[in-house]
Computed example of a mutant assay.
Amino acid sequence: MNVLRPGPLAATLALLVAVFLMMPLVAVIPVSFTPTRYLSVPDAEWSLRHYRALVENPAWAEGAWLSIRIGVVAALVATGLALMFSLGIWMLQPRFAGLLMGLALLPMVAPPVVSALTLYFFLITLSKVNSVVAYDTWAGVALAHAVMIAPFAVVLISVALAQVDRRIDLAARSMGAGLWTRIGRVILPNIRFGILTALFLTFVLSWEEIGVTLFITSVDAVTLPRLMWMGLRDNIDPAIAAISVVLIVVVVTVVLARTAVARSRARRQARA
């Protein structure tokens, strides 16, 4: 079988694009080792003082833990709502499915400032009746993030459902399977990859969200992106470069581990 391989020109262009995309990530690494109190490239002396600051300052660990907690809750809520919505559209096929899908995707296309202001006034209103899901609380931030990231989960799960053959659902129903049995044993196993992808993507989107977070938080719910933004706004703390390098290392490690697992699984399947 003939295998199409990229020519020299295509390979060169791909390499140039990869280098262009990697340059900002690579440039932040030497800056994180600067011995000065401001962002600069070290000349002769390299220092770990800003990495020590990450360990010694509990605000960074607290911000990271808060971002993880908010991201997990927001991802679960957004993916759960998206799953119910997408299943309803796929199974019932309502006449106004296109309109409903457009409304569900509205937060994705609306200007971020408009969404942020809407969520701000919504959480301020909730603050008058409770103190849990309210302005400047982690639960309020998680709810706002879930609203913003749910459309992405809807798209991924809807695409996964579009690949499912409806005849297997009809066959299960003709054999007497109830609604929950069909969903749990027929449909969900066929879209589990789409659900897992939606969970991962929504967590990442919540983790890096800063625009809406600035509107709905003040001093109590300080996430890691907000803490980094405060450092850039107030004194351009080089510790931001250090935490950026740490995040880059974590992401690269996860990607490499995922690639290694996928290759190992592919080799086992090939041997079988």
Rank of each mutant, 00 (worst) to 15 (best):
P94K: 15
P94A: 15
R95I: 12
R95Y: 14
F96P: 03
F96E: 10
F96N: 08
A97P: 09
A97G: 14
A97Q: 14
G98Q: 01
G98M: 06
L99Y: 02
L99I: 07
L100N: 00
L100P: 00
L100E: 05
L100D: 07
L100T: 01
M101S: 01
M101Y: 02
M101W: 03
G102C: 06
L103C: 04
L103V: 06
L105G: 00
L105A: 06
L105Y: 01
L105V: 05
L105S: 07
L106W: 10
L106A: 13
L106M: 13
L106T: 11
P107V: 03
P107C: 05
M108A: 12
M108T: 04
M108P: 02
M108W: 09
V109N: 13
A110M: 15
P111M: 12
P111S: 11
P111R: 13
P112S: 15
V113P: 00
V114K: 12
A116F: 08
A116H: 03
A116K: 10
L117Y: 15
L117C: 04
L117I: 15
T118K: 08
T118M: 14
T118N: 09
T118D: 08
T118Q: 11
L119Q: 04
L119W: 04
L119P: 00
L119V: 03
L119T: 01
F121G: 04
F121P: 02
L123S: 00
L123M: 06
L123Y: 00
I124Y: 04
I124M: 09
T125H: 10
L126S: 06
S127M: 08
S127K: 02
K128H: 02
V129I: 09
V129M: 03
V129S: 00
N130K: 05
S131Q: 14
S131R: 13
S131T: 14
S131P: 01
S131I: 11
V132T: 12
V133Q: 05
V133T: 11
V133R: 02
A134C: 10
A134H: 13
A134L: 13
A134R: 14
Y135H: 11
Y135I: 07
Y135A: 10
D136E: 13
D136S: 12
T137M: 10
T137V: 13
T137L: 12
T137H: 11
W138T: 01
W138P: 01
W138Q: 09
